[in-house]
Amino acid sequence: MILTMNNVEKSFDGIQVLQDLSMHVNQEEIVCMIGPSGCGKSTLLNIISGLTGPSKGQVINNSSNISYCFQEDRLLPWKNVYENIDIVNQACDKKTCLDLIDKVGLKGFEGYYPQELSGGMRQRCSIARAFNYEADLLLMDEPFKSLDYTLRLDMIQHLLKLWESTKKSIVFVTHEIDEALLLGDRILLLTNRPTKVSEVFQIKKDKYKRRLTDYQLVKIRNEIVQLLQGDRDSNLIKKSYPEGAC
């Protein structure tokens, strides 16, 4: 196991964001996390990466380094595509770097600066950078957030290509069920704040052969939708009838 979290809690200014959250990530595994907006997914990733510490609980990190793909691209505006990818890894030779650029479909754009690229291309550059960093655990925080649907499906293929060549463990946070279904070995469903893992789905099927119309995926999708819907309904009930009125 590359990462284990036991009963982690986190609160900001008296607001409890994470409560009693336990999870683990295995070697060479993609773990997808789905949760409602604002439920503390980014906080969870920040705790894993060590940017912030947990208020309570235990985080056991067996990886040497952790790479991070942010919601925004966070590329250096004064560096071109090649330099932005190259900068995180000093030991990286030119061929590996160009290979990565090719895999995310940016071949021919090595010399372009971020402001000359479209949002999708910048995000692909940022993904390539995350893969270029020497790390066995990669955290991805809604990396396809600002992209349209077809481009997302395209990016998932790029991501799988990269994953296959490096076999890094990935924690992929999203609020799009389809992304999780196509990428995840396991899908963790998170509840609303205070966040904990409410359900775990395992998908055994080969990632390259998955289609969103597959029976197994459709079944899981329905279950997730039902759970998310139920979560929302129970919240609505809590709001309309507070303090045990029901």
């Binding site: 090719d102 479909g105 071949k107 021919g108 754009f109 479209s118 999708g120 291309m121 481009l151 395209d154």
Partner: peptide, 11 residues
């Protein structure tokens, strides 16, 4: 530009 392989038409 001639050898560029772009899978999407956005850019």
């Amino acid at each position: 530009r001639s050898t560029t392989k772009v899978n999407n038409l956005e850019s």
